[in-house]
Nucleic acid binder design. Structure first.
Lengths: 141, 141
DNA sequence: CTAGAATAGCTCTAACTGCAACTATTCGAA
DNA sequence: TTCGAATAGTTGCAGTTAGAGCTATTCTAG
């Protein structure tokens, strides 16, 4: 029983590990689906989150990454003709990321692929609700 | 109510987003703590998981990453004198990663730092139990 | 009106990541 | 025994990431 001497730390660390593994699995799912459409994982994530024209900063917030990385991702999507940087109507510093028709169509197809089988599918809807509440509570600072 | 036309997909995607944000936060916490000890985030994670001598592959499993990345991390930790690659007693293909006394001491200090404030602290112990169960269920394939 | 702080986006860098290909060793079945 | 499959670790590569430092624009207090 020598390995049980730690009382609280291991559970916390195990939990962190589980979160990471699940996060990896979600990312791997997106990676695989996106790859079939010629996209990388972060390109796919960006496309999903572009529910409407938004600034680079807002997309970064939704994607859970730094704005500098969105610059990079947006560059690629723009090169491929999936989105355009439009001047922001109210703020000349900012730019609006706008999907092209080609990008909108690709997004539709990607969402279709992603809805087919989610890594969270093993959980019943009520369980997903509980999970959402717990995660939200954990993230409150 | 036009934005509510999607019934199931958005919740799923939101949930995935929450998992990612929490995962990022956990990683950022480790990154910050590890940095004070001159370690990168993955070096810190590796150190935490090295509860005993283990193969590179087992450490990869615990860290939730590919074995190839552990090769990289182990290289750095070995350079810094925190661990050694010992030949595996039973399998000449495998190597055992063994912490040096210096590495053991560093691990102790890191665990101390990490126990001080966890990103999961906002959750009560019972909530953490529920979270663990949900995550475990979600990960069953 | 005007400086100084804050913000949006960009560039650059060091580090991390998954994946595919490779070598060495072990395992398993004919 | 022996040969093919499976496994441990490594290497190389393209892609991702956070963070610091930069410019341009906006906001705010005086």
């Amino acid at each position: 029983m020598a390995t049980e001497r730690e009382t609280q730390a291991p559970t916390d660390r195990e939990l962190c590990g589980l979160v990471k593994v699940l996060s990896n699995q979600i990312e791997a799912n997106i990676r695989g689906r996106a790859a079939t459409l010629g996209l990388t994982a972060s390109q796919g994530t960006a496309l999903c989150e572009l529910t409407r024209p938004m600034t680079l900063r807002e997309l970064a917030e939704r994607m859970g990454c730094e704005p500098s990385n969105v610059t990079f991702v947006a560059d690629r999507l723009e090169e491929q003709g999936y989105l355009e940087r439009h001047p922001h109507p109210d703020d000349r510093r900012a730019k609006q990321l706008v999907l092209t028709p080609k990008g909108t169509e690709l997004r539709r197809r990607l969402l279709e692929l992603l809805s087919e089988n989610s890594p969270l599918a093993p959980l019943a809807p009520e369980e997903q609700d509980v999970l959402q509440q717990l995660l939200t509570r954990a993230l409150i600072r």
